[in-house]
Write a protein that binds this DNA or RNA. Sequence first.
DNA 1: TTGTCTATCTATAAGTT
DNA 2: TAACTTATAGATAGACA
Lengths: 194, 194
Amino acid sequence: MGRGKIEIKRIDNATNRQVTFSKRRSGLFKKAKELAILCDAEVGLIVFSSTGRLYDFASARQLLGQQFSGRDVKDLQNLEDKLEMSLRNIRMKKDQLMIDQIQELNRKGSLMHRENLELHNKVNLVYQENIELQRKVYEQGANEHPASSTVKHSSLDTENEDVLVNLELSQPRSVQRDKSETPSIGETFVQISG
Amino acid sequence: MGRGKIEIKRIDNATNRQVTFSKRRSGLFKKAKELAILCDAEVGLIVFSSTGRLYDFASARQLLGQQFSGRDVKDLQNLEDKLEMSLRNIRMKKDQLMIDQIQELNRKGSLMHRENLELHNKVNLVYQENIELQRKVYEQGANEHPASSTVKHSSLDTENEDVLVNLELSQPRSVQRDKSETPSIGETFVQISG
DNA sequence: TTGTCTATCTATAAGTT
DNA sequence: TAACTTATAGATAGACA
């Protein structure tokens, strides 16, 4: 229904596909609503785009199953079975997703922990170096300007254990990255839901 | 989209409504399928006519929820909740329907039982009458043709209890009647599913 | 009822902004 | 990218078989 006739097969061009999806989806929902009104029918429609977005419609402002006076037991049993199977599938998928994400979080957590240990060692080294430098500066200063010794100890002057704990508990920056992108060390956080 | 434009409101004429339902339903399902194919989307469509007939379509030959790699946990939780509520509603409706039908069966069963008792009494009466008649015939025959006494006892010549049991266990004729029609006594059977 | 016909209305593909 | 435009394909209301 347009300038040209199109074959009914997956549209290759992603942009065209998205545009057509948007147009046809709104057309479909419109027609579903019209059918419900014109013919006094119950209509339920659910659409997932290929990118995972959800669109749905149910006539009569009520969930499936709130008015089935006309249905017989066999039909209802059938519907119940289908819904139960869908429910099982969705639960499984959801559980798997959560398990995956927990594993991923654990993996990245342990990476971060290793990174923290390394940073801790680095800090320790720099700290020792610093003390050494300060000592030298102090000795030099004592020789040349005995009265102007003002180089203070920095905040690094704490227990090593404290430094490590602070690093582990630090808040992640807000992340919204493509999953396929390889995260650099120090950006290993995962969001549970979108 | 036809000879005239129509307003989107319930079609009053039942015949027109049915015809329009049939046409538009097939159009809707066609478009749902096209959307699924053209745009690589998951589409689920379910329609109940006002007379209670069910039509449905789900893309990709699988039940809702068998391929949701792209979905996040929040969406799936949402879907799970909706399906669970639908399931509860359908179960309740089904259970109520079955309870109603069991009650109806009990009611009609007790009617039948009463009817059987009455029939039993009637049979008893007729049987006694029969015995009386046979006796008279025998006495008459003995007077006129002593050698030709051939009137036999019929199959009614059984224990009363047996007669009653047989009546209660008799097979119903096949019934497919409108529920609103008042059944005559002796046709009080109910079908569980259509 | 169920299908066919066809004038007319609607949806939309491709193009434009 | 999203919103308009427009020519054309597609859907369908009403009539009839």
